[in-house]
C-alpha cells in the first residue's frame, strides 16, 4: 500500500458530488501531480484528502493508518501539511512568525527547521522581520511552503503553488519542490501548468469531471498522445 492512499473518494458540497470514485496515491520521496481541465475537481480532491470535505464514500490512509474520519487539524500531527491556493500566509505576521505558527503544534525547538527553511529559501531569511503581506507573490508562496514545512511533514500537499507567479519564479519553485522531495517527503500537488509539472512528477493523475481519467508516471503521461492532445495543448 502506498504511503498516502486515498481511494474511491466520492463527495461534494450540499448534496452535489464534485468528485466520484476518485483515487490519489503518493509514495515517500516522490512527487505526484494532479492535472485536468478547469472544474475537474482537482482542488476539491485535495481538500478531500485533507479532510476539508465530507466524503460519502472512500477511505484515506496515511502510512497504513485510516484517517478518513479525522478533521483537518488532527491530520497535521499525523504528518500531513497543506498549502492552500489562496490566503496561505498570515499577512500581518512577520515571515518568521509565519514559520513559528507553522510549527505551532510542535513543542520542541523550532530553530533547526527554521534554518532549514531559510537555507531552502534564502530570500526569506533576509525578510524574516517583514510582514508576509508586504512580500511579492513568489515570495509569499515560499513563505506558504515554508510554513507548511515547519511541522516536518511526511506528506506535503500543494494546491497550485505556481498560480499567478512568473515563469522564472515557477521554475525556481519547482526546483525547490524537487529538493524537498529529495529529503524524503511525499508531495501531492495540483497544477495548472500541467506540462511543466508532469516533467518533475513521478506520478500523474488526470482528473476529468471528478473522476480519474488517466493515471501513470509523469513521463508516460507526457508521452501519451491523447493526454497531450486533450490536456497539454498538443
Amino acid at each position: 500500500m502506498s504511503f498516502l492512499s486515498a481511494t474511491g473518494m466520492t463527495g461534494g458540497y450540499g448534496g452535489l458530488d464534485i468528485i466520484t470514485d476518485c483515487t490519489l496515491t503518493v509514495e515517500t520521496g516522490e512527487i505526484a501531480v494532479v492535472v485536468g481541465p478547469n472544474g475537474a475537481g482537482k482542488s476539491t480532491a485535495m481538500k478531500a484528502v485533507f479532510g476539508m470535505l465530507n466524503l460519502r464514500e472512500g477511505t484515506v490512509t496515511l502510512d497504513g493508518e485510516d484517517i478518513t474520519a479525522l478533521p483537518p487539524q488532527d491530520r497535521v500531527p499525523k504528518g500531513m501539511a497543506f498549502v492552500p491556493q489562496n490566503r496561505n500566509v498570515f499577512v500581518s505576521l512577520s515571515v518568521e512568525e509565519n514559520l513559528e505558527m507553522g510549527g505551532f503544534i510542535r513543542d520542541d525547538d523550532l530553530s533547526d527547521t527554521k534554518d532549514l527553511v531559510f537555507s531552502l529559501f534564502p530570500v526569506l531569511a533576509e525578510k524574516r522581520r517583514q510582514p508576509a503581506g508586504e512580500l511579492s507573490g513568489g515570495q509569499r508562496q515560499q513563505v506558504a511552503v515554508g510554513r507548511a514545512l515547519m511541522t516536518k511533514p511526511k506528506l506535503l500537499m500543494l494546491d497550485e503553488p505556481t498560480a499567478g507567479v512568473s515563469p522564472i519564479v515557477m521554475d525556481e519553485l519547482f526546483d525547490k519542490i524537487l529538493e524537498i522531495a529529495d529529503t524524503g517527503v511525499a508531495i501531492l500537488m495540483v497544477e495548472q501548468n500541467a506540462r511543466q509539472a508532469l516533467e518533475i512528477a513521478d506520478h500523474g493523475f488526470v482528473l476529468v469531471q471528478g473522476r480519474n481519467r488517466f493515471t501513470d508516471t509523469g513521463e508516460a503521461l507526457l508521452a501519451n498522445e491523447e493526454v497531450r492532445r486533450s490536456f497539454l495543448g498538443g
Binding site: 483537518p72 487539524q73 492552500p84 490566503r87 498570515f90 499577512v91 500581518s92 503544534i105
Partner: peptide, 21 residues
C-alpha cells in the same frame, strides 16, 4: 506563542486551523 497564535487566528481563521491552532 499563544499571543502570536491569536494574531494568526485574527488574520486568517482557516489557515490557523491548518496550522493546528
Amino acid at each position: 506563542r499563544s499571543g502570536k497564535a491569536m494574531r494568526a487566528y485574527s488574520d486568517d481563521e482557516d489557515l490557523a486551523l491548518l496550522s493546528g491552532i
